[in-house]
């Protein structure tokens, strides 16, 4: 098992190196002159040059890259110029917000899309099937930022059901003692029920926005995979043996149909992390996505590089976790490197 994990990690190294190189080059091509930006509105040409030297931007690209890689090996991702803090600290502080949101959306999406997919498969070509298809496809057809703003307008501004879109917690709550960085879990651990409720309320709208966006792939794959399994011999045998329809579907068919769904989850997760960038901006969510967008628009290299690197590592880890999950769901599957 451990060797397997180690081998998988080794295999991921080339693509992570690729990500580092591409990001580095991309950020250097960004049109803004960082030095001019940070030298302030009234800087003379000489002052801009001083800032350039101070930021190390007067060096040649290969030299800059070498020093960047050197810092990276020491675990130093540099400091953000816009927020003035080390990128590592900022990413560490913001990553839980993004992952909590993404995971919550993924869970919500599973809860809705998997049953829909099952029903659509069982009642193949019925109105439920068509409805599922139209409903989930409609969800993936709207720009997420638009859905988000619309939800805020309807559920906060008009109806007042949702709390103010002020980020992870209402202003007058303090965050629970940090343990996992996930407010929902931390507040439960600390038995702060009020905080838990407040955090859940803040999480609701962004979660729904993201979940709507990810229903389609999950429902689609569940349906396809269920259709395959329902047509297989063992299901026919089980039915012939007189087992009730519900038992057959839930106990035999669904469990076997689960594998492709889990494979898709990895893809959906990274897809959601991308969509996150826009949702975070709409809901003032203090996650890594909004951080990276701001940095990119300010030609602030370090956070962009750090963000992309962290996302790439996360992507590798998630895929690894999914392979491991495979083994849990289906013991016959032997996980290979």
């Amino acid at each position: 098992m451990l060797t397997m994990i180690a081998r998988r990690m080794m295999l991921a190294i080339p693509s992570i190196v690729g990500v580092i190189v591409v990001t580095f080059l991309l950020t250097r091509v960004l049109p803004g002159d960082t030095a001019a930006y940070f030298a302030g509105p009234a800087a003379s040409a000489q002052a801009v040059e001083e800032v350039r030297v101070k930021l190390g931007l007067d060096q040649s690209i290969p030299v800059q890259f070498a020093s960047y890689v050197g810092d990276l090996l020491r675990g130093d991702l540099g400091a953000s110029l816009t927020t003035g803090r080390p990128v590592v600290t900022e990413l560490a502080a913001r990553l839980p917000a993004s992952t909590e949101l993404t995971l919550a959306a993924l869970l919500l999406s599973l809860v809705i899309a998997v049953p829909l997919g099952i029903i659509a498969a069982v009642r193949n070509d019925s109105w439920v099937d068509h409805f599922t298809r139209i409903f989930t496809t409609a969800g993936v057809s709207l720009p997420v930022f638009f859905t988000g703003l619309l939800f805020v307008y309807v559920f906060y501004f008009l109806l007042g059901w949702a709390p103010a879109p002020l980020g992870r917690l209402d202003v007058f709550y303090s965050s629970p003692p940090e343990w996992t960085g996930f407010f929902l879990i931390d507040s439960l651990v600390a038995r702060e029920w009020e905080t838990f409720r407040a955090a859940l309320a803040q999480l609701a709208l962004p979660t729904i926005t993201l979940a709507v966006f990810s229903l389609a792939p999950i429902a689609r794959i569940t349906r396809a995979s269920m259709l395959n399994v329902l047509a297989s011999d063992f299901v026919r045998t089980a039915r012939a043996a007189g087992l009730s329809g519900g038992t057959v579907v839930m106990r035999y068919a669904f469990r076997n149909a689960l594998l492709p769904v889990i494979t898709t989850l990895g893809m959906v997760f990274s897809f959601l992390l991308g969509a996150n960038v826009l949702v975070e901006k709409v809901f003032a969510w203090p996650g890594v996505g909004s951080y990276a967008v701001e940095a990119l628009l300010a030609s602030d290299y370090a956070p962009v590089q750090g963000f992309v690197l962290v996302m790439a590592i996360l992507y590798v880890l998630v895929n690894l976790a999914i392979d491991l999950l495979y083994g849990v769901v289906d013991p016959r599957m032997k996980v290979e490197g």
């Binding site: 991921a12 693509s15 992570i16 690729g18 990500v19 591409v22 990001t23 991309l26 950020t27 960004l30 990274s270 897809f271 992390l273 991308g274 969509a275 960038v277 826009l278 996505g289 990276a292 967008v293 990119l296 962009v304 963000f307 992309v308 996302m311 790439a312 992507y315 590798v316």
Partner: peptide
């Protein structure tokens, strides 16, 4: 694939 795709598009 290892890039967050939307951010890659933004960067480009």
């Amino acid at each position: 694939m290892a890039f967050p795709l939307f951010v890659l598009a933004m960067g480009i």
